[in-house]
């Protein structure tokens, strides 16, 4: 009889302890933020008056930049996702189908921004934005060009893992042999099978854009993050509420990505 094999998995108590520590690291600042927003004042006690103020639209004109920042950030998220879908995805499909030898180069280029600090990016982007401002104006949406670079590593990984999960070459060749033109191949065969990667890439891009501060601040654009900093100087409580709402939105996006990742039985490979 063979001796029982010792399990290398940690014991239940150890797992719970690790989970509790990691959970606390994440939860304590958030709970502290929530607690902070509900403080009544120096006399102690808690209420939801500031949350009610935000949700009933009773904020004064001093908070207009925050609303402007929310709008700008949403527009930026949309344009950034559009850039990602219009430029990155077709490039990745082209490389996978026609130029597989360029795969490593594309991966290197796409992952590069993650290793460059935002401040260094801004130094490089500043003269570029002088030209962009002359050509397209100085609207906040133009930040999407820089954000398109910033989200590359995240969007690339999300889409690439999906490309690797399906046999994109054989599916394409099968569709072509059945009479499909290139547009049909992309729209009717590749896109539906890359849906998970595309949605995950898009959502993670939105999350990155909503959380970005450095580039927007240094290029003097008003986004959610820069507006929050300004608002926090006038009313730290309201600024923290907006920060919590942005955090909640990012959490929801991540949960949606996770659910997409699991996929729907029957419609995914």
């Amino acid at each position: 009889m063979s001796a029982p094999v010792a399990s290398i998995a940690p014991r239940r108590a150890t797992r719970i302890l690790i989970l509790a520590i990691v959970g606390a690291i994440f939860a304590i600042p958030i709970v502290a933020m929530v607690e902070f927003t509900m403080r009544r004042g120096l006399d102690g006690g808690y209420d939801l008056s500031r949350w009610v103020t935000v949700f009933t639209g009773q904020l004064g004109p001093a908070y207009a930049p925050v609303w402007q920042g929310v709008q700008n950030s949403l527009v930026l998220a949309l344009v950034t996702v559009a850039i990602m879908l219009a430029l990155l995805v077709p490039t990745m499909i082209l490389v996978a189908l026609r130029f597989p030898q360029l795969q490593r180069v594309l991966e290197f280029v796409c992952l590069l921004p993650i290793s460059i600090p935002a401040i260094v990016l801004v130094v490089g982007l500043a003269p570029v934005y002088q030209v962009i401002s002359r050509m397209l104006g100085s609207g906040t949406w133009t930040l999407a060009f820089a954000y398109g670079i910033l989200v590359l590593p995240f969007a690339y990984r999300a889409v690439q893992s999906n490309i690797e999960a399906i046999d994109i070459v054989t599916l394409t060749e099968a569709a072509r042999s059945l009479g499909a033109g290139w547009l049909t191949v992309i729209v009717r065969v590749l896109m539906p099978n890359l849906r998970r990667g595309l949605l995950a890439g898009a959502f993670i891009s939105v999350a990155v854009v909503l959380g970005e501060f450095t580039i927007a601040s240094l290029l003097s654009r008003t986004t959610l993050q820069t507006a929050l900093v300004v608002a926090s100087k006038a009313d730290a409580f309201i600024a923290v509420i907006f920060a919590l709402l942005a955090l909640l939105f990012a959490f929801i996006l991540l949960i949606v990505i996770g659910r997409i990742g699991r996929g729907r039985l029957g419609r995914t490979s």
Binding site: D167, L171, N193, R195, S269
Partner: peptide, 9 residues
Amino acid sequence: FQSYSLFPH
């Protein structure tokens, strides 16, 4: 084809 080529979706 040699590999399975049915469209998964």
